[in-house]
């Protein structure tokens, strides 16, 4: 059943999202073409205007995609469509998992498309080699500072994945909490969302500040071994924090769906 939910979730959201993203790529291609026209190359304001337009497009796409994913969840679970979703012979956690998974996948695609479009616009000869050299340089610095490269990469990936999962789960959490109210459910969801992300940010800042202030780190921030400790610490704290919030959100959404569902 989980596979089927994933399949149908993908089917339901891919077309509109794909259209939006292909549009961005097209914009990048057109931009690149325009930029290569000799006449236009001389005019600085052309660059500026295109850049602004492009940035606007990217921002719209990013926000639009995330809003679309959040609204999709709300519509499919807590409006009339919820009457179908919740009477399917599947458990609530399967709904949450399938939607979280597809949202994460699409966010990843989204990021990849944006990167691709940037590359299309600014790609120049030798950029590839420069980039790889730069990246290897960072890795060398890290290993010289005594930080295990492999661990660093693994942590980076894990954090990335957790970020992709935490993003939709935060919406699902906020939307579900909003459902507990008798009126103004949407408003409650939005407010919950803002409160939640602020609380998380505050906690994150507090924790890292504590770590900074902690003498073991403070003195050595400048030294190599301190850097290692700091980096490791921050990454670990972040990872654990993300994990805890993800699990917490999951449990709350699951509970609300199982015990506090009240479709109108």
């Amino acid at each position: 059943m989980l596979g089927k939910l994933v399949k149908h979730e993908w089917k339901a959201i891919t077309k509109p999202l794909a259209i939006m993203h292909i549009a961005l790529i097209l914009m990048a291609i057109i931009g690149k073409v325009l930029l290569n026209i000799e006449v236009l190359k001389k005019a600085d304001y052309v660059w500026g205007a295109l850049l602004m337009l492009y940035i606007l497009a990217v921002i719209t796409l990013e926000i639009g995609t995330q809003i679309y994913l959040a609204v999709r969840f709300y519509k499919n679970m807590y409006t009339d469509e919820g009457y179908l979703s919740f009477t399917l012979p599947v458990k609530s956690w399967e709904h949450i998992l399938s939607k979280t998974f597809i949202s994460a996948v699409w966010t990843l695609i989204d990021i990849a498309v944006v990167i691709l479009s940037i590359l299309i616009l600014v790609m120049y000869k030798g950029m590839g080699t420069e980039f790889i050299e730069g990246f290897l340089g960072v890795l060398t610095e890290l290993s010289e500072a005594g930080i295990s490269v492999v661990w660093f990469m693994i942590r980076l990936i894990i954090n990335g994945v957790l970020y992709l999962i935490a993003l939709p789960l935060t919406y699902y959490f906020s939307i579900s909490i909003g459902q507990l109210f008798n009126s103004h459910k949407m408003l409650a969801s939005v407010i919950t969302y803002f409160i939640t992300i602020n609380v998380i940010q505050v906690i994150g800042t507090v924790v890292s500040t504590i770590m900074m202030v902690n003498t073991t780190y403070a003195d050595d921030v400048i030294t190599d071994s301190g850097m290692k400790g700091f980096y490791n610490g921050i990454l670990d704290m972040g990872m654990i924090g993300n994990l805890i919030t993800c699990v917490g959100f999951w449990l709350v959404v699951n509970y609300i769906m199982n015990k506090r569902l009240n479709l109108e």
Binding site: D80, E81, G82, L84
Partner: peptide, 9 residues
């Protein structure tokens, strides 16, 4: 179950 509303996408 057939609910009173349109529950299909």
């Amino acid at each position: 179950y057939l609910p009173e509303r349109t529950y299909l996408n």
